[in-house]
């Protein structure tokens, strides 16, 4: 190198050049794959060859051929590059604290994607967990979630809860819009997801003239299947659109860890407000 300085080799970067050229056996194509022009690629390969003290490629009129030495070094180069990729992605996982660990009650069904899109549009990066409310409350207590949207009413001692959010619902798969005229059972999440909320819904169904018969289905897909098969009706939340008067609403609350147990890098109140706005 001019001036007697050591060769300017960025080992991982230049090994990346090596791998790219070895893969396609063409400098121009490799440069295109790497999103660069050919001269700096060729220069990088030359520097790497000088640094390693071996020739990696033979260039002649027929094209580019990898040398025997290059062939021998290629696996080690790939290992190094893969290890570097692993390191970067492991670091990215460790950087997850930047994300809000959000628990969402499975009862929200089709409203979940919209809620997450709203949060993303508002600049909140979210690592979502969809589960039953009792499980989410346990995760919040154990410090494994930052924010939970759980079904109300439920027990959440030791946590702080916001206002009750009342989300209207509508019937699906029913031949009447009046609960009193429906003879099929209602497909609902398992009672153990939030027993008091489940019991409150059954009471509300009876109050409206329905028998209160329900089928507990483990997830939304199972509930949709039951409705499609005509063995149950569905009762689904309507975040924006046509709700049906007379259908018991889905009640939710945003639940946060106690103030002293919140991760400082998360703006809990802002996330809670965004969720309330999205569901309100």
């Amino acid at each position: 190198m001019a001036g007697g300085y050591p060769p300017e080799v960025d080992l991982l970067r230049h090994l990346g050049f090596f791998r790219a050229v070895a893969d396609v056996r063409h400098f121009g194509d490799a440069a295109a794959d790497l999103g660069m022009t050919q001269p700096p690629l060729s220069q990088g390969i030359r520097r790497l060859e000088r640094h390693l003290g071996v020739r990696l490629f033979d260039r002649d009129a027929r094209g580019v051929r990898i040398t025997a030495a290059g062939q021998q070094l290629l696996p080690a180069a790939r290992d190094l590059l893969d290890a570097a990729d692993d390191l970067v992605s492991a670091a990215r996982d460790l950087a997850l604290p930047e994300q809000v660990r959000l628990g969402i009650a499975a009862d929200l069904e089709d409203a979940v994607p919209g809620l997450l899109r709203d949060l993303a549009a508002g600049g909140t990066a979210v690592a979502p967990t969809v589960a039953g409310s009792v499980e989410l409350v346990d995760l919040l207590r154990d410090g494994l979630l930052d924010v939970g949207v759980v079904r109300h009413p439920g027990v959440h001692d030791g946590l702080t809860a916001g206002e009750v959010l009342v989300v209207p619902t509508r019937l699906v798969g029913a031949d009447s819009t009046s609960l009193g005229h429906i003879t099929l059972p209602v497909a609902v999440p398992p009672r153990h997801h939030q027993p008091p909320a489940h019991d409150q819904l059954v009471d509300a169904l009876r109050r409206a003239g329905h028998s209160g018969a329900v089928v507990e289905a483990r997830d939304a897909a199972q509930r949709r299947a039951l409705v499609a098969a005509g063995t149950a009706v569905g009762l689904v939340p309507v975040v924006d659109g046509a709700a049906e008067p007379g259908c018991p609403p889905l009640r939710l609350r945003v639940v946060l860890p106690h103030v002293t147990r919140r991760r400082p890098e998360v703006d809990h109140d802002a996330v809670a407000a965004a969720i309330a706005a999205g569901l309100g």
Binding site: H152, P153, G154, V155, P196, A197, D199, Q200, D203
Partner: peptide, 11 residues
């Protein structure tokens, strides 16, 4: 202390 607020909770 019940999660439900209603006055009549036989359960």
């Amino acid at each position: 202390r019940a999660a439900r607020p209603e006055r009549h909770l036989p359960r």
